[in-house]
Amino acid sequence: MKQLLKKLSEAYGPSGREEQVGRIIRDELESCVDEIYTDSTGNLYAVKKGTGAKIMVAAHMDEIGVIVTFIEEKGFLRFSNVGGVNPYVLLGQRMIFPNGTIGTVGMEKLEDIKKLTLEKLYIDIGAKDKEEAASKVKIGDVATYYRELGEAGNRFIGKAMDNRAGCAVLIKALQEMSKTDNEIYAVFTAQEEVGLRGSRTASYRLNPDLGLAVDVTLVGDTPEAPTMDVSLGKGPAIKVKDASVICHPKVKEMLEKLADKENIPYQLEVLVAGGTDAGAIHLSRDGVPSGVISIPCRYVHTPGEMVDQDDMLNAVRLLTAFLVQPLNMQEIFPCYLS
């Protein structure tokens, strides 16, 4: 798990520019799935053919970043955010561009640090002037945090755990799962961080019987944290609700029962703000019953995101068990009212 997560976490893949992550995932999965392909939104599909229920499992592979909008005469790069980037977190970070160019984030002189906005920041790639800068970076290039994966006991610290941790879990599940009749569409989605865009077009394309997302979630176990009952290390979380989706009660219940049966520790998650791919999937076409398995993650959207190895391994167990179980859609989603 560590090696896989390290590769994924350190890979470059901001929203809209996910190809490098996609290649790593393809190499991991090529030998254990029937088909791999991409689409115009940037999603990567890995398919295990079957005759049973058609399940879509989404894990987004994009990460947040910053997009260069202007190169100043002196070679400094101005930028805008791709996804939820906090200027205070950005300050002083090392950033990396797809061609390997690195830079550091500097700040204009500021009387009051409370007035820090993205417009006051710039990236310095060590260029002497505009010309040198432009030879390394073009307007429109996107940079992400430049950070190695670190280990802290049984926990990992790094960038883009949101959601390479979810990608790693999904990859492991596909590699380790036993035979099943279910037709499984693992979709490593693009552009989740800018509005669940990849999963929206992917779920429309696939029109699955059932949708599942694997993503990270916030925790409530740090000092003065938001009020929620999810802790790091207490198992994967089964989502009840967030701002984008109220998980189908039946899917949530199926996940709970399965975890109980397999003796997998789990937690129930009510996330007040924030969304995930299931938000787009469940509203696709005439509706797709959907659920979410979340990996608890501290310090989301910083380069120091922290996840717990056991949570990830247990998420793999839960996901695998879910994907291989026989599913009779007519039985699971009858007209309950009759």
């Binding site: 929203s15 809209g16 997009i67 791709v82 429109g140 509005g195």
Partner: peptide, 11 residues
């Protein structure tokens, strides 16, 4: 346009 609030231009 490279990117706006609704859209990221494909390369």
């Amino acid at each position: 346009t490279l990117m706006d609030a609704s859209y990221i231009a494909p390369q």
